[in-house]
């Protein structure tokens, strides 16, 4: 894939966040040697393409009081995975949901992340949702005890 130099430079410039000036798009445009309208149109395009998932506050969970971060892994029959994944994704406490391959010694194929304000709350929420949907599948809770390295999603 050939990336247009303007695309690349704009992505990189935006990686630092929107400049905190009254006309940030004009400011970026001047730096990149294009027009304000071109900058705005390109951000719209990135968003439509899905390259930008969302354009807003990129927050740190922990500093917001979401101190408990639990990865819940499930062993779901392949035939049911779509249905169960959708059901979990619709739950208010679930912030990410992925299907991943099983491995030898690792039978879990569905991963969801739950962020909560405390471990007890996360456990309680999970218990409630398991009861409510009668989810009898094998699962495990992997709470994080330490964050060693966190680099925002950067790719240029």
């Amino acid at each position: 894939m050939v990336v247009d130099p303007f695309d690349h430079r704009l992505r990189r410039a935006l990686q630092e966040g929107l400049p905190l000036v009254s006309k940030p798009y004009a400011y970026l445009a001047e730096q990149l040697g294009v027009t304000e309208q071109e900058v705005i149109a390109k951000i719209e395009e990135f968003t439509q393409q899905g390259l930008i998932k969302r354009f807003g506050m990129v927050l740190r969970h922990h500093e917001l009081g979401y101190s408990a971060n639990c990865m819940v892994v499930w062993d779901i029959p392949d035939m049911e995975i779509e249905t169960i994944a959708q059901l979990l994704s619709d739950e208010a406490c679930v912030t990410l949901c992925y299907q991943r391959p099983r491995r030898q010694g690792w039978p879990y194929n569905l991963f969801c992340m739950i962020h909560g304000k405390g471990r007890d709350l996360v456990e309680q929420q999970l218990k409630e949702l398991i009861e409510r949907h009668q989810l009898s599948y094998p699962h495990q809770l992997l709470f994080s005890s330490k964050r060693f390295k966190q680099r925002g999603a950067r790719y240029v």
Partner: peptide, 13 residues
């Protein structure tokens, strides 16, 4: 304060 990483795009890497 470190609450906000960035006010801008969340890229789908």
């Amino acid at each position: 304060k470190g609450v906000l990483t960035r006010f801008g795009p969340l890229y789908n890497i």
